[in-house]
């Protein structure tokens, strides 16, 4: 009986260790978006994106606080949080998905790899499936992922009032940069 407990403990330790060894995370990922129109250019950056990547299963997720988007212009930031994103009601945005070609990426070898990802992007309680590509760079045990995706504000229930229509692009360019560290 005692031996059984010890071996169970050992097994759980080994399993736990191997799972953790494949888990990479960051609390300071960057997601920025840009809206470009003839009337106005708007950009904002969130530098505290929480993201987890499992290099074995390909599971990839990130979450961010809408209020942590930093706009150079305070008035734009206030409008974004109060009128468009309604950040008090919907404080977080998230993505949960996976990299389909994870087996083709050798995380033990320096190199630049293309990752195909699919998952559920949730903003303002609206969830849509997105699929795109990311570039994964492995360098001396460090992993970083970058991607550029397109997001349509109207898809996520952003209501743009008539006077501002024309100042906000129908489609935003969203840049993602995640520099991971291994979970210890």
């Amino acid at each position: 009986m005692k031996l059984k407990i010890v071996s169970l403990l050992l097994l759980s330790f080994v399993l736990n260790f191997s799972i953790e060894a494949q888990t990479y995370f960051t609390k300071t990922g960057t997601i920025k978006f840009e809206s470009k129109t003839k009337l106005e250019d708007i950009k904002a950056e969130n530098r505290k994106v929480l993201s987890v990547l499992n290099t074995s299963t390909g599971a990839l997720s990130f979450t961010l606080l809408m209020k942590a988007f930093d706009f150079p212009n305070k008035i734009m930031q206030d409008h974004f949080n109060e009128s468009y994103a309604e950040s008090d009601l919907y404080p977080k945005a998230s993505f949960a998905g996976s990299i389909s070609n994870i087996k083709q990426i050798d995380f033990t070898k320096n190199g630049t790899y293309t990752a195909n990802f699919t998952g559920q992007l949730t903003i303002k309680n609206v969830t849509k499936t997105i699929s795109d590509q990311a570039t994964i760079v492995v360098k001396d045990g460090k992993i970083s992922a970058t991607s550029k995706i397109k997001v349509k504000p109207a898809d996520y229930n952003f209501k743009i009032p008539a006077p501002v229509v024309g100042k906000i692009a129908d489609e935003l360019d969203v840049f993602i940069q995640l520099n991971y560290e291994q979970k210890k």
Binding site: K48, L50, L65, K67, A68, P91
Partner: peptide, 12 residues
């Protein structure tokens, strides 16, 4: 203060 996401987040 921006809020809470596993950690308390602050900017500026």
């Amino acid at each position: 203060c921006n809020g809470f996401l596993m950690d308390v987040q602050m900017n500026k």
